[in-house]
Design a protein around this nucleic acid. Structure first.
Lengths: 255, 255
DNA sequence: ATTTGTGAAAATATTCACAGCG
DNA sequence: CGCTGTGAATATTTTCACAAAT
């Protein structure tokens, strides 16, 4: 969205495109579901459908990792899972520090999806002395001033900021000073960090505002329902098993 | 990230680009901060900096809304705020239904950023009868089966899904059937919806996995298998101002 | 003097369509 | 055959750089 271009190679290219990296976790989840369902192999078409993308994009994305498919057959679910995990650096278990144990912090601390994807919440911290000592999900809340020690001791390289906006930059600075080099920011503000530190943000109200835009257009928009000239040929596949009580259906992931 | 292209006009263009729409809320927030700080006008350079983008992008983005700046001067903070709000459809107060009042649902229900940006949580719903009747933030939790009545009565067009993944598609179908046309999905799964319904998702573990990718690269060099010709020039910079409180700083927003 | 607004250029991302492999 | 992997074609987004406006 900005300036931050964590992946872009400075000059000539030879890495995985950002857009692809952002989709790999989605493929991973789809693969996980397929494996649970007992599939050994998947075609790009199937996998793409369950990930909510089209198959050309999926194949192009996977091609950046190497050639792990078999022509005429598809991809081995287990092998592909491993390769994507490897590419994402998920073969190791990252230790994460979560700062701010308010409402949202509590919810994040209890979020099962972290653990299941190779992340371990190694520390909970807060600036409020009243919160220090509280036990959340079996983890003791420590004071933010202990950050340097905790980061060092636990080998933490990823920090999550779930504080109110006014404290976020200070916490961010503390995380960086302690050696954290990747930050996930839930506070609704822009963070400034030195080069070499990656920041991603999740902003709930921004997402709603984007929906507001589309909602508004649906209501008053220029092209309420597009004058479809003839229907973009085979796009927007009507999914096979379009449930009974549910409309036609279109796979959708995001943005 | 996928297929869903809520805004893209089918053929010729005549709308605000998606990438721009996604940044408008950020500008709005920066403007709000500037107004609080007492500024009457801002240059594209200043506003861009506080929003974490570069000024060319900012100006290009704003140019899609019209010409609201004054050459040689800058933008009137109040006027620009109004114009962006208008473009985003925030001049009206959207009623939102939040489904799933577990950990995350509780946190979302209490999130101040919604109300402050023109959204009103008009209903909390859950499928668990044990939760019905609970009072959260002054709002009574209702049973999901009451959805149609509630949506109609409150004029709800935006739904937020904060249920576990296995229930998300069902809830989504119910929201759509009740008339909701925009959905913000926090459940880690792909939703399928009919045409005309917009979905955005927020996936906490995906964000972490993306950070993992970058963290991994920082740890094991840019190209694991790269026959690097000469060293990618200035990458992986040893942070300039390193220690001492906080480093040089670089504005960062996201993706 | 400044600073906007914008064509044109460059960089990214997506989609097409098919050669080639199993 | 069927399906992957990928060049080539599009589409979108970002950046440059400067004429025009105040």
């Amino acid at each position: 969205m900005t300036d931050q271009r964590p992946s872009a190679r400075t000059g000539r290219d030879r890495g995985i495109p950002d857009a692809t990296v952002a989709r790999l976790p989605v493929y991973l989840r789809a693969l996980s579901a397929l494996a649970d369902a007992g599939s050994d192999t998947v075609s790009s078409e199937e996998l793409a459908t369950s990930a909510g993308v089209n198959s050309a994009k999926l194949r192009k994305d996977l091609s950046h990792l190497g050639s792990y498919g078999t022509r005429g057959v598809g991809y081995d679910v287990e092998l592909l899972t491993e390769e994507i995990s490897l590419a994402l650096g998920l073969s190791q278990r990252w230790a994460v520090a979560l700062v701010g144990v308010g409402n949202l912090g509590h919810a994040l601390a209890g979020y099962a999806g972290f653990a299941s994807r190779g992340f371990r919440i190694a520390a909970l911290l807060d600036a409020d002395p009243a919160r220090v000592g509280e036990l959340i999900q079996g983890i003791n809340v420590q004071h933010i001033d202990d950050l340097p020690a905790v980061v060092e001791h636990e080998g933490i390289s990823i920090g999550v900021i779930a504080t109110p906006a006014p404290s976020a930059q200070l916490v961010c600075d503390q995380l960086v000073a302690a050696g954290v080099t990747s930050i996930l920011n839930f506070a609704p503000c822009v963070l400034s960090v030195p080069d070499g530190v990656d920041v991603r943000k999740v902003d709930l109200s921004i997402e709603l505002q984007i929906l507001s835009f589309h909602e508004n257009r649906k209501a008053f928009g220029a092209q309420p329902n597009q004058f479809a000239k003839k229907q973009p040929p085979g796009r927007l596949t009507t999914l096979p098993g379009g449930a009974a009580g549910t409309p036609p259906a279109r796979e959708v992931v995001n943005e």
